[in-house]
């Protein structure tokens, strides 16, 4: 399997995505914003469509659209007096509507588009790997450096604001990291399922973890294993990678729930 270059590229990109998605998703889940990744994914769809229309890299246009969408959700939530789910709904539906119109205009309702929607291990290029490694690395470094600050805001946003911490900037940082993750992950997992890889490992980890930090570490482990096992299974069983990866992540939730139940009983 690893003799094939496209599989080596898929594993390399997948490993980065497997670490990055749960690490960023950790903060979304703790803030009870688990569906934000899904909303950003739908805006990324509009970005991919714009890329086809303008004949430039769909990954780059999806990245730009995702960042704009994520920041819009955050601004609507904090300054637009829209409840979190309303802010998400506004951006979510605007994104998908824009995507449908742009795809139709570009005449791009074809197999290539489906690769972005559902993921494909055949489409990852060396250029993708460079982009994912560079932006993923920056996102992980930013996350590690700001971990304590993000935890503090997550625990009590208002108390953090009273103490003069840059709460708005930290919230926008999380939004931008979430958008970056969505754009980078869509080649492997697909736009429609990328949010699942951000959220399911974190929820699963929360069942067996003993602290916030252990939740993050376990979630990253589950994300990484889900991607690697999912890609392998996808290759040998000829299954779509996105769905296979997410099913393994969902399976981890089941496994962690059983471990938690056994632990409580004993």
């Amino acid at each position: 399997m690893l003799d094939l270059e496209f599989m080596r590229l898929a594993f390399a990109v997948g490993a980065i995505v497997g670490v990055l998605a749960p690490a960023v998703g950790f903060f979304l889940v703790q803030r009870r914003q688990s569906l934000v990744g899904d909303g950003i994914g739908h805006v990324a769809f509009a970005g991919v469509a714009a890329g086809y229309l303008l004949h430039i890299s769909p990954v780059l246009t999806a990245l730009v659209a995702s960042v704009l969408g994520a920041v819009a959700i955050e601004l609507l939530r904090t300054r637009g007096r829209a409840a979190g789910d309303q802010a998400l709904a506004i951006v979510f539906y605007t994104g998908i509507a824009l995507g449908v119109v742009l795809v139709s205009s570009a005449g791009a309702l074809n197999v290539n588009l489906f690769q972005y929607l559902f993921g494909s291990i055949l489409t990852v290029t060396r250029g993708d790997l460079v982009l994912v490694a560079a932006l993923g690395g920056v996102a992980l470094i930013a996350l590690a450096a700001s971990y304590r600050a993000l935890v503090s805001v997550t625990l009590d946003e208002e108390a953090a604001r009273v103490q003069g911490l840059p709460v708005a900037a930290l919230n926008v940082l999380v939004a931008i990291m979430a958008a970056t993750t969505v754009a980078l992950s869509m080649r492997i997992v697909g736009i429609l399922l990328v949010a699942a890889l951000m959220v399911l490992p974190v929820i699963a980890a929360g069942r067996v973890a003993w602290s916030m930090f252990s939740t993050l570490v376990i979630a990253v482990g589950i994300g990484l294993v889900s991607v690697l096992v999912g890609l392998t299974t996808s290759y040998y069983a000829d299954l779509p990678p996105g769905g296979t990866i997410v099913l393994f992540a969902a399976g981890s939730f089941l496994l962690c729930s059983v471990v938690d139940a056994v632990r409580r009983r004993s």
């Binding site: 950790f26 889940v29 703790q30 803030r31 009870r32 304590r148 600050a149 935890v151 503090s152 997550t154 625990l155 009590d156 108390a159 953090a160 103490q163 003069g164 911490l165 974190v202 929820i203 980890a205 929360g206 973890a209 003993w210 602290s211 916030m212 930090f213 939740t215 993050l216």
Partner: peptide
């Protein structure tokens, strides 16, 4: 005051957050 979101935040993690500012 919240005791965190989904994750099982420990006493030390909560108190450490207070030192940030």
């Amino acid at each position: 005051a919240q005791a965190g979101g989904e994750a099982p935040v420990t006493v030390r993690e909560v108190v450490s957050a207070g030192r940030l500012a």
